[in-house]
């Protein structure tokens, strides 16, 4: 099997730091380096990861990689996807797909026109816990699902990358950042589409008056199978919390209740240097499974498990939540085509 040659477009998203290591661990992948429009990041992460760097995206694409992983700021996804698609590269793009629907649709079209795969980085489906739940639900182990209480709470990501709390670059704050993972998981678990959203959204975790985006969000999402789901997207974990945040889903169903804490496989480590407990996650890395699926879809010449349409379906919930919070009313989502 010939090696797939892969590059990374931008190190803006911190996940790039994980992906580069995933890529380098894979024997059938040749990691060729990364480009970034930010010279400082190019310099910093080039050194940190001892990686080849390219001064601009054209230079990276001129190396004719088979595939790229796009980890730019959210509002640059479209530009970079269109660039990579026109160079004939398959694309794994960070979530959310885009900051607005038109960009998301343009990205899907660009990839369809260029006949390349577009996968959105929603790795939770590849969590070993999620896989086990999916299998159990498929066997109707829980009976009919009624509702779910979910959280994807986090620390303020701008402790690590300032652009996450820049309205233009990120497209929003906590709701933009933390809605799509749970929505994607539930769409996949239930094979159902979100049709209605109510949300309270505000900038509540902003003590030093530093931020101009939403930092708190409580959503109620109703799916077309009648299941209703609350989701807490808030950046409500303090900087001294033992980890970055959580993904939790409590499913209330006919035959009982299934509580899941996807990152609960952890050690609590008390370290002199830190003077605070830290949680070291020791569960299986969902990113590895996601990246393997991306390359498998390329080699098998088929669509990836998570498509641009999936990314767009999740983004629609985000946009509806912002609308609802403005109107203080329920907002409907036009029905998505199931992928």
């Amino acid at each position: 099997m010939s090696k797939l040659r892969v590059g990374i477009m931008s190190f803006a998203h911190l996940h790039a730091e994980g992906y580069i290591q995933n890529l380098r661990s894979m024997p059938d992948i040749e990691y060729i380096g990364f480009a970034d429009h930010d010279a400082e990041r190019l310099e910093k992460f080039g050194k940190q990861f001892d990686s080849k760097t390219y001064p601009d995206y054209a230079a990276l694409l001129a190396e004719k990689p088979d595939a790229v992983i796009i980890c730019s700021e959210n509002n640059k996804h479209r530009e970079l996807v269109e660039l990579a698609a026109s160079a004939g590269c398959h694309i794994l793009c960070e979530k959310p797909i885009a900051t607005n629907e038109a960009d998301g649709q343009a990205m899907i079209k660009a990839c369809a026109d260029a006949n390349v795969n577009l996968m959105i980085a929603l790795p939770m489906r590849f969590s070993a816990t999620a896989q086990q739940i999916k299998a159990s639900l498929a066997k109707e182990g829980m009976g009919k699902i009624f509702c779910a209480n979910t959280t994807n709470q986090g620390e303020n990501p701008d402790y690590h990358r300032a652009w996450f709390s820049d309205k233009t670059l990120a497209g929003g704050g906590a709701v933009m950042d933390h809605t799509v993972h749970v929505v994607d998981l539930l769409r996949w678990y239930m094979n159902a589409e979100p049709i209605e959203v109510y949300a309270e959204v505000d900038n509540l975790f902003n003590k030093d008056n530093r931020l101009d985006v939403d930092t708190a969000g409580l959503l109620m999402i109703t799916f077309d199978n009648g299941v209703f789901v609350t989701l807490d997207t808030s950046w409500s974990r303090p900087s001294f919390y033992p980890t970055w945040g959580n993904v939790k889903i409590d499913l209330i169903a006919e035959r009982g209740v299934l509580r899941t804490d996807y990152f609960n496989q952890k050690l609590t480590v008390y370290e002199d240097q830190q003077q605070k407990p830290l949680w070291h996650f020791w569960g299986s890395d969902p990113n590895q499974g996601m990246i393997e699926e991306f390359f498998a879809s390329i080699r098998e010449n088929r669509p990836p498990l998570i498509t641009g349409e999936d990314g767009l379906a999740a983004l629609k919930v985000v946009l509806a939540a912002y609308d609802s919070a403005k109107q203080h009313d329920v907002v409907s989502i036009e029905h998505n085509n199931k992928s």
Partner: peptide, 9 residues
């Protein structure tokens, strides 16, 4: 704003 199994199901 609230939903309940009683109201939805």
């Amino acid at each position: 704003f609230a939903k309940s199994v009683r109201s939805e199901h």
